[in-house]
Design a protein around this nucleic acid. Structure first.
Length: 263
DNA sequence: ATGGTAGCGTTGCTA
């Protein structure tokens, strides 16, 4: 089974890029974040035409929103919400092969890395704490589950272009990296991409729209992740970050992340 | 220290 996750930054504006991705990579399951569309306007027919008859989506007008496109039947869909908000950042699709796919979009957290003065950062930290508690009590290491999405946190030194300069920049601050590590340890999850790419190797999935010449400067961050439960780790066969998608016409600022499993 | 771009949907919010 091949799974790809991608923060698409508007599924309607970039539906042709979704088409390009699915024809090039042919995932069995595609997790999308920031679809930025209310459910009645979701491009369901286009997804079906691409070969994904099973689609679950949970969107809202203008912001956020997540979707799972699948070639395999989806037996059950859940859309948890956190911190008392209806943010539409989380969708759990149970596939007919017994694997649960958890599509997740963790809040970015704003600019100032202080939860006392920045409500968005406080929300991000609370969001991860609530996820940690929920997964610790609801998911076991023997459950077949994949957690994929834009986590908006780059945990490792080589997940950012400059560890030292990023320590005070939201996405790489010690407090959120520590919370993400606790979250990962709660099940515990296996980082399916770093399973194949050594920690000593730089790896990014996001480059800001604001930086000119992103490719030359390469000031990226690894914000997008795929984690699997321990029982799926022996089935992992490969992982890849589709960096070339950042050069596509009118690209997302995130690129697709892929894993292959032999179930 | 600052500002840079993009999307949504109307002009400010979010990333």
């Amino acid at each position: 089974m091949r799974l790809v996750t991608w923060n698409i930054n508007s599924i309607r504006l970039r539906i042709d890029l979704v088409r390009r991705l699915t024809s090039v990579m042919a995932p069995d399951v595609l997790c999308l974040q920031e679809i930025k569309v209310d459910d009645p306007l979701f491009p369901l027919a286009a997804c079906e035409e691409m070969g994904y008859p099973h689609v679950a989506f949970h969107g809202m007008k203008g912001y956020n929103g997540v979707a799972v496109l699948s070639k395999l039947p989806i037996d059950d869909v859940r859309t948890p919400s956190w911190c008392g908000r209806e943010d539409r950042r989380h969708l759990v699709a149970r596939l007919a092969n017994g694997v649960s796919v958890h599509c997740l979009y963790i809040p970015a957290g704003g600019d100032i890395p202080d939860p006392e003065t920045n409500d968005k950062f406080a929300h991000k930290l609370d969001f991860v704490r609530e996820l940690t508690d929920w997964y610790a009590s609801n998911l076991r290491p023997t459950d077949k589950a994949i957690l994929a999405g834009d986590f908006n946190i780059a945990p490792l030194e080589n997940d950012v272009w400059s560890h030292k300069q990023m320590l005070r920049v939201i996405s790489h601050t010690p407090v959120e990296v520590d919370l993400l590590e606790r979250f990962q340890a709660s099940v515990p999850f296996v980082d399916a991409v770093r399973h194949f790419v050594p920690h000593s190797e730089r790896l990014y999935t996001w480059w800001s729209y604001r930086s000119a010449d992103w490719e030359k400067n390469d000031r990226g961050r690894r914000l997008d992740h795929v984690w699997v439960t321990p029982c799926l780790a022996p089935s992992l066969r490969g992982a890849m970050v589709a960096r070339e998608a950042r050069s596509w016409v009118q690209p997302s600022d995130h690129v697709p992340v892929m894993i292959d499993l032999d179930l």
